[in-house]
Simulated scan of single mutants.
Amino acid sequence: MNLLMRLRRTLDRLTIYLPLFLFAILALGSWWLVRSVPELMPPGIDPQLRQDPDFRLDQFTVKSFDATGRLTREISGQSATHFPATQSLHIEGVRILAENEAGTRLTAQAQKGISREADQQVTLTGQAQAVRQADAQGPRVELRGETFTVGLEDERLVSDQPVRITRGAEVFTAQSMNFDTRSGHYELQGRVRAVLPPRQTP
């Protein structure tokens, strides 16, 4: 009888500690499983983002309008490929037309362009060219270079590479440029050279 009572007490004690033993076994099993399974994706890459393009456009044109229905921006190209991982649109044969509320009109084109949704800008590369049409602020201005960054919101055109600017009969070259398309004013840096026509005396 005493032996039976002792056995029952021993079983009761084991029953108390049984959940702890089970949790310990499960924890060890999970740790072993995590260490044994190889990484499916390299570190630092969000598994939810696709690294390959998710869509492609051919011979496309995208237009933007303001609240009054006035055309403010038009971007077109021969083809475009969208990469969701970087939220960027890579455009072949890109062309841009922009006009602000003051009527200032700017056209730009290049062999390639990259439009980033978050930055509201387009980077033009490969024989980039931009033209600000003549208006009350000044004469026609033409810009040529290898790379331009067009700010769609601040209406600026920036380049950190050599550029050539033709303003009426004046020609400027510089190593870098910051051009305000609204006012027609530009800042040139680096080695700046200018060819100015002679003034006509009355």
Rank of each mutant, 00 (worst) to 15 (best):
S183N: 03
L33V: 12
I16P: 02
D135W: 07
R13K: 04
T149C: 04
D119G: 03
P47M: 05
G69E: 03
V94Y: 03
T149I: 15
L188Y: 02
E142F: 03
Q121H: 09
Q161N: 06
A128G: 14
W32E: 06
T166H: 00
L188A: 05
E142K: 12
H185E: 00
F65M: 10
R9I: 05
F21E: 01
G113S: 06
A98P: 00
E74W: 01
E117T: 11
L4Y: 10
D154Y: 03
V192C: 00
T104G: 03
H90T: 03
N2T: 12
N178Y: 02
E146R: 08
Q87P: 01
P43E: 08
R182A: 12
P53D: 09
A27Q: 11
L157T: 03
S115P: 01
E99M: 13
H82L: 05
H185W: 00
D58A: 06
I75W: 05
R199N: 09
F65S: 09
T72V: 14
T149V: 14
F179V: 00
T10N: 08
Y17W: 15
R70T: 10
P202N: 15
G29K: 04
E74L: 08
Q48D: 13
A27M: 13
R140G: 01
Q121V: 01
V163N: 04
P162V: 09
Q200N: 07
P38Y: 07
D12L: 15
D52V: 08
L7A: 11
L11C: 08
V34A: 03
R50M: 13
E92Q: 13
